[in-house]
Design a protein around this nucleic acid. Structure first.
Lengths: 202, 202, 202, 202
DNA sequence: GATGAATGAGCCTTCATTCAT
DNA sequence: AATGAATGAAGGCTCATTCAT
C-alpha cells in the first residue's frame, strides 16, 4: 500500500493539470489555434495520454466551462452571506467592473459562447451552467429586495436577474472592443451604481 | 461598349457577394471552421477569385466588421433624428432587446470579438469601429440629456455611453447562454426601461 | 497609314518587352516563383495578352535561352575578329572571369539547365543552342592554333572546346557556391591564364 | 522492452528514408514540382509525419546538400590517402569526368545552386559546405605540390583550388547542355590531364 | 498508466491559363 | 490587338486522433 491517493484521485489530479494547461493555451491562442500538442506539453504529459483523461478536445473545453461555473456560483454564494447585498456590491463596484473587463479571460469566455452556439455538446454545458447561475442570481435579487420581493409582479425578479447578468457579460464583451476599458472604470462606476440600485433596490 | 457599370462597381458587387456568403458561413460554422471553398461556393465564384477581391480570410472578416459598423452607425443616426430619443427608445424597448438577442448574429459577433483579442489586424478594425460607435453613443446621450448635459461631471457622459453599449452587448452574449431569451423579453422590458432612464434621462 | 511598323514588327517589339520583363523576373525570383502576373505587370501589358505572343510560360523561357544564345554567339564572333585570339583572352582574363561569376545571371542560367534536364521542349532549345556555341568554340580553338591545328589527333579540338566551355560554366556555378568569388579574381587569373594556354596554344 | 535502437536512431533512419525519397523526387521532377505527397509516398510514410522529422520542404533540401557535402569530403579524404595525388587523378581522369557528367545528379545539383541563390537558408548551407570543400581542395593542392607549395605567391593555392572546383562543376553543367557528353570523354581526357597538371603539379 | 510515432483529411492560398468583351 | 475577370487544380502544411508498445 502506498501513500498515494486512489487511482480515481490520481486521474482527477491529472485532469486538473490538463484543464490548467488548456485554459492557459486557449486564453493565449484561442480554442481552435491551441493544439493538443501544446496543451500536452504545458500539462507535462504526452498528447496520447490526454485521450485517456478526456474524450476529445471539445470535452476539455466543456470541463473548463463547468469548472468556471462552479467558481462563479461560489462567488455568488459568498455574496449571499452578506447582510446587505446591495451595499456590498456598491462598495465593490470598481473592482467588479474591472474584473469583468479582463481581456484575457474575456477572449476565452466569448469564444466559448461563440462555440456553444454551434456545438450542441458545449451548448448543453453552457445552458446548464447558466441555469444554475441564473437561479442564484434570482435568489440574490430576492434576498436584496427583502420583504418587498413578494409584492412585485411575476417576472420582475427574473427580469432583474437577467439584466444583471447582461450587464456583466456586456462589460466582458466591451473590454475587447475598447482597448483600454479599465481606464474608464472611474467614469463608469457612478453610473453603474445607479444601475445596480435599479436592479437590486426595492 | 456595354451599359454595365464600371469595373470598380462590378468588383464592389462581387465583394458584397463574398461578404454575404462569408457572414452566413461564419455564422453557421464559425470563423475557423468555415472554409474558403464553402464561402466561394455560396458566393457563386471560384475560391481563387476571392483572392482577387480580398487579401485573405482575415481580410474578409475585417470587411464584415466594417460593414456591420456602418449599419450600426446608421441606426444610431436614425435614432438621433428623433426629437425625444429617450421616449423613442422606451417605446421600442421590446424590439431593441429582441434584436440584440438574435442568436444567429450573436454567434458571429462574439466570435469576431474573440478573434480580435488575438488578431491585431482585426483588433485594429474593431477598435476603430468602436471608436466611431462610442462617439455616436456619447452624442446620443448628450442629445437626450439636453441642457442638463452641461452640468454633469467629466466622464459622466462617457460612463453612460459605455454602459449603454455594455447593456446591449450583454444581451447578445446572454442570448447564447439562455436558450430562450426572446421569451423573457416581457420580463426584461420594464426593468430595461428603468435602466434606459438612468442612462438617458437628466 | 501610320508611321508604326507592320503588325509583325509590332508583335516582335511586344515580345521583346515580355522577354525583358520575364528575364528580370526570373533572375529576381527564379523561374517557378516568378508569376505571369508579375511578368505582365513589368512588361506593361495584361496577363491575357502574353498568351497572344507566347504559347505559355515555358515558351518564354525557351525564347530567353535562344536570345542569350545569340548574344553569346555574337561575343564569340567578335573574338574571332581578333588576329591573336589567345592573347586577346589572356589580356581580358580578369574581366572574363568576373563576367562568368555574376551571381544574378548565374541563378537563371543554372535554373535553365536544371529545368532543361526534365523539360524536353527546353532541352531541345538548349541542345540546339549548345550545338551552335560548341561549333563556334571549335572554330575559335582551331583559329587560335593556326597551322598546328591540322597535326592534332582527332577529337583534340573538340576536347579543348568542351573543356573551355566547362571552365566558364564552372565559374558560373562556383559563383553561387562562393559568396564572394569576385574577390578571388586576382588569385584565379594567373592560373586561369595557364589553363587558357593549355586550351588555345599549339 | 525491445532490441530496437533508441528513439533517436529510429528517427535518424526515418530521416534517411525521406532524404532518399526526396533526392529521387527532386531529381525526377525538380525541387518545386516535387510534391510532399510524392516524397511521402516514396518514403513510405504519411505527408504529415515528414513534418515530425523536418521543419519543412526547404529543410529537406538543406539536409540533402549537407549529406552530399559529407560524401564529397569523404572522397577528397580518400584521395589524400594517396602518396601521389596527381598521378592518382591522372589515372582516373576518365572515370572522374564521367562521374561529374552524370545528368541525373547534375539536375539536382544545378537546381540546388539556383535555389540557393535566392533562398538564404539554403545559401547558408551551401556556403558552409563549400567552405569545407574548398579547404580540403586547398589541402589537396598543397599536398600535391609538396615542398614547392611554400615558394608560391599568396593566393596561388586558392586560385588552383577554385579552378579545380570550377572545372568539375563545369562538367556537371555541361552534361546538361551536351546531350551525350559521356561519349566525348575520350576526347576530353587528354586535355583534362594537361589541365590537372597545371593545377596540381609544381 | 503513459508514450510518442504515425496517420490522413482538410485547409488556405497561389497561379498558369482561358475567354468574353 | 488587348483586357482582366474568372477558373480550378494542386501544393505545403497543420493537427486531432489513434495505437502499438
Amino acid at each position: 500500500m502506498t501513500l498515494s491517493a486512489n487511482p480515481s484521485d490520481r486521474a482527477l489530479a491529472r485532469r486538473q493539470q490538463v484543464l490548467d494547461a488548456a485554459a492557459e493555451a486557449f486564453r493565449r491562442r484561442g480554442f481552435h489555434a491551441a493544439s493538443m500538442a501544446e496543451i500536452a506539453k504545458t500539462a507535462g504529459m504526452s498528447p496520447g495520454h490526454i485521450y485517456n483523461l478526456f474524450e476529445n478536445k471539445d470535452d476539455i473545453i466543456a470541463a473548463i466551462v463547468e469548472r468556471d461555473c462552479v467558481d462563479l456560483l461560489g462567488r455568488i454564494a459568498e455574496l449571499q452571506q452578506e447582510d446587505d447585498v446591495l451595499n456590498k456590491m456598491l462598495g465593490e463596484t470598481e473592482r467588479a467592473i474591472d474584473e469583468s473587463a479582463q481581456v484575457a479571460d474575456a477572449a476565452l469566455e466569448l469564444e466559448v459562447l461563440a462555440e456553444a452556439s454551434r456545438n450542441p455538446r458545449l451548448a448543453a454545458v453552457v445552458h446548464q451552467a447558466e441555469a444554475l447561475v441564473n437561479q442564484k442570481a434570482q435568489d440574490l435579487v430576492r434576498q436584496s429586495l427583502g420583504a418587498a420581493a413578494d409584492a412585485l409582479p411575476a417576472g420582475e425578479i427574473q427580469g432583474r436577474a437577467l439584466l444583471l447578468a447582461a450587464l456583466f457579460n456586456g462589460l466582458t464583451a466591451l473590454s475587447v472592443r475598447q482597448p483600454a476599458l479599465s481606464q474608464q472604470v472611474p467614469a463608469m462606476a457612478p453610473v453603474m451604481r445607479r444601475m445596480l440600485r435599479v436592479l437590486l433596490a426595492p
